[in-house]
């Protein structure tokens, strides 16, 4: 804080400088409190608003309404099956799509010839709206799980291939040169240098891809016939039958899915990338 006194600027300690430990502790408490309080307050306002009918309780049910509906969906309407069906499609599509995406990312990133050969074709396919592939896929694979899984896999593939290839191609030249001087063969270069160098950004890509996969599976289930079942079907069906509580319950579950799977990817990252941790000990 500076005070001006007749041509003098005096620079004195701020509260943060005087007692950094106390200041930081106080700041951290505030931040944690806010992180919890904001969603809680929002939910409380939603609950009261619905109870007091500040808005139509039919279209915007309260928290308790939604939770109650959720329980009834599980008990009376076999919602667990829909959820299971969606998760199964999600997992299969995501795993296949990202594995192939990683494969292409690495092969095209490392091998100039294959890249020049395949990139134009893949770029052309990238921009095809995947919904357009629905009919040919149905004809090719029949009903219902296979075309949905393939659609998710294709969508995830593109989302994983592009950033992976880019990450592979931007590995520091000096990392590669240091290995070349020791006479590494291709496998050694991949295992010791290219793979670990790109893993941090690959995990970011995988986190984005799981969100994309969830959006895709729900969207696709919107479009499919009721016999396909699934979370997307439940949400969409609720819209058309004006059961807003079911719709909101479905949306809540979709959000829970997103948070859960993203968290799983983060855990995997923390296990596989121990060098990225903050708490490694003091610098010299």
């Amino acid at each position: 804080m500076a005070t001006e006194q007749k041509n003098a600027i005096v620079l004195t300690p701020t509260a943060a400088d005087r007692d950094p430990v106390k200041y930081n502790r106080r700041r951290r408490t505030t931040e944690v409190t806010l992180a919890i309080a904001v969603p809680v307050v929002l939910l409380v306002i939603l609950q009261i608003g619905a109870d007091q009918e500040w808005w139509s309780r039919i279209f915007y049910p309260s928290v308790t309404d939604v939770v109650r509906e959720l329980r009834s969906m599980f008990v009376e309407r076999d919602f667990a099956y829909d959820l299971w069906v969606t998760i199964r499609r999600l997992m299969l599509g995501y795993i296949f799509g990202s594995l192939v995406g990683l494969l292409f990312g690495f092969v095209l990133g490392l091998n100039r010839l294959t890249r020049k050969a395949l990139e134009p074709l893949l770029n052309a396919l990238y921009t095809v709206p995947k919904i357009a592939l629905l009919s040919p896929l149905l004809i090719a694979f029949g009903f219902y799980d296979k075309p949905i899984v393939v659609l998710i896999a294709i969508t995830v593939f593109f989302f994983v291939w592009v950033p992976t290839q880019s990450a592979v191609m931007s590995v520091q030249a000096s990392f590669r040169e240091a290995a070349t001087v020791f006479g590494v063969n291709r496998w050694q270069m991949f295992r010791h240098v290219m793979l670990p160098a790109t893993l941090p950004s690959i995990f970011v890509t995988l986190r984005v891809a799981i969100s994309v996969a969830i959006l895709t599976v729900i969207g696709v289930e919107f479009v499919f016939a009721p016999q396909a079942r699934g979370l997307g079907y439940i949400i969409n069906d609720a819209r058309s039958t004006l059961s807003s509580r079911v719709a909101w319950a479905g949306i809540l579950i979709a959000s829970v899915l997103g948070v859960t799977f993203t968290w799983i990817v983060r855990i995997a990252e923390r296990l596989l990338l121990p060098w990225n941790k903050e708490d490694q000990g003091s610098k010299d």
Binding site: Q172, S174, F175, E177, A178, A179, V181, F182, G183, V184, Q188, H192, V193, P196, A197, L199, L273, W275
Partner: peptide, 30 residues
């Protein structure tokens, strides 16, 4: 075939390997 070893200006040691694994790198390759 590879009689030379090189030390670069920007170190180029691998952040994903521990110090001992970095130092052992050339020997692993061999």
């Amino acid at each position: 075939t590879r009689p030379a070893s090189m030390v670069f200006q920007d170190y180029s040691i691998y952040p994903w390997k521990r110090v001992i694994d970095n130092a052992r790198f050339g020997l692993d390759i061999a």
